[in-house]
Amino acid sequence: MGLDIRIPIGLMFVIFGVLVGGYGLATGGSEIYQRHSLGMNINLWWGLAMLAFGAVMLVLGRRGTGAMRSSEISPEGRAIEESEHQRGVEE
């Protein structure tokens, strides 16, 4: 249960990778690369890198347990609730 943060991170970077990498493919040889990135098609290469990073995050997120649990479930969360009652700061 819970939401593993690696899933949204992975998804976002996969989308960024496809977008930027695809843009790099489409604009290959354009003068923007001469003007900015020392003649290198940085969009294509960094797009691929982001795609790979996103994919790794997705795989890890599907396997792992990087999720938050509600305070009712986590032992530390319950301990906090209990101490609030003991100290009388909460009803």
């Binding site: 819970g2 938050m68 649990r69 509600s70 305070s71 009712e72 969360g77 609730e81």
Partner: peptide, 17 residues
């Protein structure tokens, strides 16, 4: 939907890796 108590909201239920 996980924000049920004040501990969830202010302390993330003390449950984050």
């Amino acid at each position: 939907k996980y924000m049920k108590t004040s501990t969830d909201f202010f302390l993330s239920g003390r449950s984050i890796p």
